[in-house]
Design a binder for these strands. Structure first.
Lengths: 232, 232
DNA sequence: CTAACATTTCGGCTATGACCGAAACATGGC
DNA sequence: GCCATGTTTCGGTCATAGCCGAAATGTTAG
């Protein structure tokens, strides 16, 4: 019979988004290297290493070495069972958790020229990506720079694939709500898919709006300098 | 499909010892009042109220009112399932968790006159209970004072029941390890049972020693002024 | 109506955990 | 042997969660 304290410690191990991400990656894939899990959780290697050490020490995961790589896996099926159980419980509680940003801070909608990210996120993204050189505003319109191509690929957006499609890659559209220009085109759509898969934003069913999560707000601020305030 | 973030939030809800205590109390008993859960978790009413509000908001528990009491219960069987799963996982990981106090700081053993709590805990308890008036050192030996009786009952130790048993209620025995007197008798045994159930101490299998947990160290310091240092 | 009980709210305090960059260490490829 | 890659360690920063007491609020018993 485990004590309340040790049970709480196991739950707390799962109770961090980065660690939870890693645990689910391991549940789904069976095993993964420290590098894989670092990218999956989107944290610094040092952060990932510390989390992996904690989960190993807590007995949730086990490690084997293969060359320079360390491969991790869940220690038992019971750990996987707990993750599934938590997933079921989480699915039945409030879908956006106790703390969310307000609804109308980012919108997604489809128009003639493809997906758009409007609102503060879309405008902020447009400004950030032009400002940091990812996108270039040239004579031929908006284009992706060479270094920008690499950065977007690192983020998980394959620019070449998007370019070979018939849809327009990039567009700047006037955003009446922010009185500025926001991002449109298939790149905007791909970015948004990426943000959804990272749980930076969540789609609102039956609406074009998306919800920026606290994790997303932190990521947008850090990566793109887009500031959001947590609201009640 | 719940997001990683919402799953981590559910797990984090369980990942606090006070909240976990309340959740398990509800799992075992079906329903309990806020006051019951406050005592169970051994926190201040304000702390308990805040925890209950969080778990309610997170969808883990639900509340109904009856007069001045608020009664809580788990919202679904899935929550109970997760708690059981966590219990199984915790039972198979390191039983004393990543951080414990050293083994030899308290010992429990049975002698001719009944249970003893020796070592620092036993000596500290004896001193504290005499010092705060719970126990009186009179001509008839060591006795429980009237106010001490109430205090012990509040702690969950039923002194009357112990007194009606044939075993010796109280004894002071010389503790060679601390060169002082420690507590013995059925009251010592009942206190120790109480501490185990609160996860303030844990028995070491195959040994008379017990382990003082960080929670226990905090409680002993606060309630009895017995200082422990957390060790590696 | 008042006192007692149950519970909540709020402001404040403190410990701690997550995060990271830089440096160090381990391993493999050339 | 050197360089690149993967990973860990360590010192430091900062946000936040848990805790509480005091006061406030709600309900009931007398």
């Amino acid at each position: 019979m485990a004590s309340i304290l040790s049970i709480a410690e196991v739950a707390a191990m799962i109770g961090d988004p980065a660690r939870a991400n890693m645990l689910f990656t391991l549940k789904d894939s069976g095993a993964a290297s420290a590098g894989d899990l670092t990218r999956s959780a989107n944290v610094a290697p040092s952060t990932a290493s510390e989390h992996l050490a904690k989960m190993t020490e807590a007995g949730l995961i086990a490690v084997t070495r293969s060359g320079r790589n360390r491969y991790y896996r869940l220690t038992t099926e019971r750990v996987a069972d707990v993750l599934e159980g938590l997933e079921k419980v989480a699915a039945r509680t409030r879908p956006d958790g106790p703390e969310t940003l307000r609804n109308d801070e980012a919108t997604l909608h489809a128009r003639g020229c493809g997906d758009h990210i409007s609102g503060r996120l879309g405008v902020g993204l447009a400004e950030a990506l032009i400002g940091n050189g990812t996108l270039r505003h040239g004579q031929g319109g908006l284009t992706v720079s060479d270094t920008g191509r690499i950065a977007l690929n690192d983020l998980g957006v394959d620019v070449s694939t998007l370019e070979s499609a018939p849809r327009k890659l990039l567009a700047l559209c006037h955003d009446w709500s922010e009185d500025a220009f926001h991002l449109g085109g298939s790149l905007a759509g791909a970015l948004l898919q990426n943000f959804v898969s990272r749980d930076w934003v969540r789609r609102n069913r039956g609406s074009h709006t998306v919800l920026v999560t606290p994790t997303g707000a932190a990521a947008f601020k850090k990566r793109f300098g887009i500031a959001y305030r947590v609201t009640a």
